[in-house]
Amino acid sequence: MTNSPLIIAGKEFKSRFFLGTGKFKNKKEMAEAITACGTQLVTVALRRIDIERHQENILEHIPPGVTLVTNTSGARNAQEAVRIARLAKASGCGNWIKIEVINDSKYLLPDNVETIKATEILAAEGFVVLPYMYPDLYTARALVKAGAATVMPLGSLIGSNQGLKTREFIKILIDEIDLPIIVDAGIGAPSQAAEAMELGADAVLANTAVATAGDPALLAKAFAQAIEAGHMAYLSQLPTQRTVASASSPLTGFLYDIPAKN
């Protein structure tokens, strides 16, 4: 395993911690958290961008140089996600889009089928598409085919802080999918983010945990460091993560024994 940089759609990211911008007390705390953790990519819901009101416009508080990804929060099907993405682009928010298609306001689970459809349409229109999905191998493969720039499987329910409940399935995506795997949703503590990185995720996106912490900037920094540590651990080839056969063969070594002469 080599320490190759994280590249999404040709853009290099030194920080593997991505931050969502919802639920902060105020824009100042959000901006401080962004600066403190050194993230280079933030997501903003188009529904929360008030283009007309400069003082209240969240975009005014995002430091220059940070990549803005608009999300399609509120979309209930592919068609709505596509319309929101186009509106975001027309509003000057760029062409990086995180697709969120959610048709369940109780669990907020993403609709994988509609997500694939939206990815296909938007990628063909030249958007850089980061689809948020439930970690399913077939969906991930379809997203690759549809032109996604990354795959963003959920760790657990949005805002639940429950960590990597989908660990085994995310691991399959890490092993099988060649696009960057960004673990998104449900990551409630730096230790959980580190776990995802140790597993081999390429990056982690967090929001609720940071935004609702007593000191968001401090927690954001802790996340960034945990993610870096987790990534280093992954590169080190953790002994606990070895899935291939070990050099010694305690179970099959007997087959190579030289038969004793009677």
Partner: peptide, 16 residues
């Protein structure tokens, strides 16, 4: 704002 709440004016962008 004084109570550390974030007043939200738009939580939807109208689409067709």
């Amino acid at each position: 704002k004084s109570k550390n709440f974030d007043p939200v004016f738009t939580d939807w962008r109208r689409i067709e």
